[in-house]
Write a protein that binds this DNA or RNA. Structure first.
Lengths: 337, 337
DNA sequence: CCTTTTTCGGAAAACGTTTTCGCTTGTTTC
DNA sequence: GAAACAAGCGAAAACGTTTTCCGAAAAAGG
């Protein structure tokens, strides 16, 4: 295809392959004159080194992998943005994989990452993963891994997360202060670290304000938006229905809005809502949505930065960094008194 | 690192490297017994073939590149989703690159794609690119390229787009039928194919309804949301201000909402709005936003499918496919009579 | 029992780099 | 003027696969 490699270059220049290679890498073994000639010819013939040959020889891919549950999601899209920014600065390529919240898919993806395809992995766990064996296996082959947002609980590793417990606490407290007496917690199925910590914050806030915990108010939702709306409508039809909803992820807030529209429930008069969300249009919604907003872009940047530190100086890699960033609670009309 | 390669496998099994390789590839030259032994040992030692060695030898990367202006954008996020779906089905890896609407960045990215790193490229052009030389160069090295949404005008190539002209026409006609007398067209700077075609539709609709074209009503915006709000407020403060706005991209509709909020202009009473958009919350906005919605996910799927056709049977690759999908106009309250 | 197939497996080249080592030259040093 | 040294370049191995070609042994055929 491309056809122009070191061999062709060397023939064109009347030099040996090794000399050309060294000239291109600015080796001290090559005279300035020759280097100039080589550079010019390389430019002229539009030479691009073969990444596979180089990767094979140097045992380095200049590539990282990003494994996330989904991309059509404001949080992850922003995180990727931050990751790409750092990766581009470092001259690295970025392979992206979507697991669609499927453990099998995550496992097979991670497995394919062994064998040297990438120099490091950034991953946010999928919802229904029950084991981290595949990640331990990858880790044992020497590939640095940094987890962000959704992190494993049974694995010692570098992580970048937000203050989920505190944010869950504050969000609940905010609803209580707005006058809510019965607050539902909307969570995704599975055992995500984020869901769990946010819920613990929710429970702690209820306890602080001496409000009873009703298991029926802790609602598990799935990946299908339509069924989620149905689930939410169901709890809104209970005899003693909630007067507040704390959505632990953005999509559940949106489903709650739909549910209220269909049931003609007024927000915030009849139901107050707050949600984790990176929606850029939160303030334009009807009514505007109160949010806990994670610094998604920064999370991406921080985790990529941490990963490159591990990639570049493996020697000091014993230290396991656990970076925690702060989320912002932004009060808007959906939780107004 | 990984340490387990064909050599180690062959030593463990008392076979030659070539036999192990052939056994793993299910060659007829190897007996069923031996194949079984090899497979078991490979499983046991968790063997993963080195992608660089394989890529070098087979001159194939099993990887495609996706080059887009931005990722924190509903349209592109959905398109990527569709692309990833097809790529995953085909067993391909996906490298993602963001140009941030910067021509230099696009050029350097495309340049790095030469040399065999990928077997094909999907690209949506950046806004301020004035030349396609870098893409022609890439194309000449034999790498298949499919353009989607933002396509070049001066290059014969496979494309996947939507009916931008018709959609632009319909959107404008819709505003006219809703009673608008003076319609502003909000466009991004640069010469994007989409912007141009949508504007041509806008102009054609004005002509059909014998409405004058006011150059001041064709407004160029940039990448910064704050400045865009300022620009939009400026035209809304004109003596004869527009009573309708056709935003050619989503972010400009959002900026228009902000501008109206700040100026206390009522939508749709004082200003009607319609916009190209893939916002999932369009119907939840205040007021709900009328949109022309592109089938972004399908665009991703179609372009990936087209690319893989080119990758797999280069022989029939002379045919240049130009796929055009239909967008949907969804009337909501922002353009109500 | 000898020849001809067939079956199974190994040797080695090739993919395009990088890098170590060694070989020429020409230059310096005493 | 011989010895030591430096500068500039080339030969060749190595990275881990795949694949072509070849050889040995076993099976089949007469």
């Amino acid at each position: 295809m491309s056809g122009v490699n070191l061999k062709k270059l060397s023939e064109e220049l009347g030099l040996s392959i090794s000399s050309v290679s060294k000239a291109l890498r600015d080796s001290y073994e090559i005279s300035a004159d020759t280097k100039k000639r080589v550079l010019e010819m390389a430019e002229k013939l539009n030479y691009q080194p073969n990444p596979f040959a180089r990767g094979l020889r140097k045992r380095k891919s200049i590539t990282i992998a990003v494994v996330i549950p989904e991309i059509a999601n404001n949080f992850f899209a922003l995180a990727i943005d931050g990751i790409q920014l750092i990766a581009q600065q470092k001259g690295y390529h970025v392979l992206t994989y979507l697991t669609h919240e499927d453990a099998k898919s995550e496992e097979s993806t991670v497995k394919h990452l062994q064998g040297g395809r990438v120099d490091g992995v950034l991953i946010s766990l999928c919802g229904d993963s029950n084991s981290v064996d595949h990640l331990l296996a990858l880790h044992e082959t020497g590939v640095p891994i940094v987890f962000f947002d959704r992190v494993p609980e049974t694995m010692e590793c570098p992580t970048v997360t937000t203050d989920d417990y505190e944010s869950g606490f504050k969000a609940t407290e905010h609803l209580i202060e707005a006058g809510c007496k019965k607050i539902a917690y909307l969570r995704m199925a599975g055992h995500l670290s984020t869901t769990q910590k946010r819920m613990n914050g929710y429970l702690a806030a209820l306890k602080k304000y001496k409000m009873p915990v009703d298991p029926k108010m802790i609602v598990e939702c799935g990946n299908d938006n339509l069924s989620n709306v149905a689930i939410i409508k169901k709890i809104l039809r209970m005899k003693i229905r909630p007067d507040g909803v704390f959505a632990s992820v953005e999509k559940l807030a949106i489903s709650t809005y739909y549910a209220c529209n269909e049931m003609k429930l007024k927000i915030p008069e009849q139901l107050k809502i707050i949600s984790f969300s990176n929606l850029r249009t939160a303030s334009l919604l009807s009514p505007s949505l109160s949010t806990i907003t994670q610094p998604a872009f920064e999370i991406g940047k921080e985790s990529a930065t941490a990963l490159f530190q591990m990639i570049e100086k493996k020697n000091f890699g014993n230290r396991i960094e656990q970076i925690v960033l702060k989320s912002n609670l932004i009060e808007r009309n959906s939780s107004k008194k």
